[in-house]
Design a protein around this nucleic acid. Structure first.
Lengths: 148, 148
DNA sequence: CTTTAATAGTGCGATATCGAACTATATATA
DNA sequence: TATATATAGTTCGATATCGCACTATTAAAG
């Protein structure tokens, strides 16, 4: 184990952490004050899965405890962005689906973000993002697989 | 504005978010339950700045509101990992410095993380991390500069 | 079929986050 | 210098997070 390698790994995760916080802040500035980037991610996730997902699946996908997801779903429901129905396949479980309002909300917010995205592309370049994607996906998958 | 470009940007930030959460979870599993990755980051930050930093500098560096930093400092103090002293240069302000115990704690936790780091290097390779670093730093700096 | 173990979701309580309002000190302006 | 404005930090209150313990339901073992 080389000291320099440890340094590299720490710096990598530090950069990732800062970029994550900056992008979250950017997104959350466009959202109602009680909706976080995670709420937004949940709507996006559900809009790609019309059949819906269970609260536990959502909790796993977003790496939060299931009690936290229970609470987040309540907030999304209060905004009318998701519906919760019993799960016919499993009486213990439920199914969360995006409402029409949820899909509309998602589309509208993405529209509102277009100027920011355009600015990022203008100043940084799509290639700067695109060229990093495969490497990030690789690291993400291996980290995920390494969870015991 | 091309649809594909927007997709690329969204996927980039999504990957960054997931990697951040996975790495935080990995680190926090090694920390006392009331210390977060941010607390750990603060000690690391201070250990590189023996002259100390003000609470506001720390809040800015870690992108949290100053009230949150007030609270985090209290927790670190309770653990004896930092000291808080009046700031001779500015009576409104304070200086937070890492204690010997704080430095020792940092070193010990980094030691404890070595097996995880070794595993990551083994399975993913240092180059996979190192090769992404310049691109990430570039994006981080430009995003940071773009904050109005 | 009955009993046991596992799983999905929720209520509760302790703590964390963070905005608003406040106090103390410092800087700028008249 | 006197006054006004700005800044550092804290207190307080509303809400979020998340572990623990609990209920309801399903799956597994006998």
């Amino acid at each position: 184990m080389h000291e320099a390698d440890t340094q590299t790994i720490f710096r990598f995760f530090t950069e990732v952490g800062i970029i994550n916080q900056l992008s979250r802040a950017l997104l959350e500035a466009r959202l109602p004050s009680d909706l976080t980037a995670t709420h937004f991610g949940v709507i996006g996730h559900l809009s790609r899965r019309p059949e819906g997902e269970t609260p536990l699946q959502l909790a796993t996908a977003f790496q939060v405890p299931k009690t936290t997801m229970t609470h987040m779903i309540k907030v999304l429901q209060r905004h009318g962005l998701v519906d919760v129905a019993p799960n016919a396949a499993d009486g213990r479980s439920k199914l969360v689906v995006a409402t029409g309002a949820g899909a509309a909300f998602l589309g509208q917010k993405i529209q509102e973000l277009q100027p920011d995205i355009a600015k990022a592309i203008d100043e940084i370049g799509v290639d700067a993002f695109a060229s990093l994607l495969p490497g990030l996906e690789n690291i993400r998958m291996k980290l995920d697989a390494a969870r015991d």
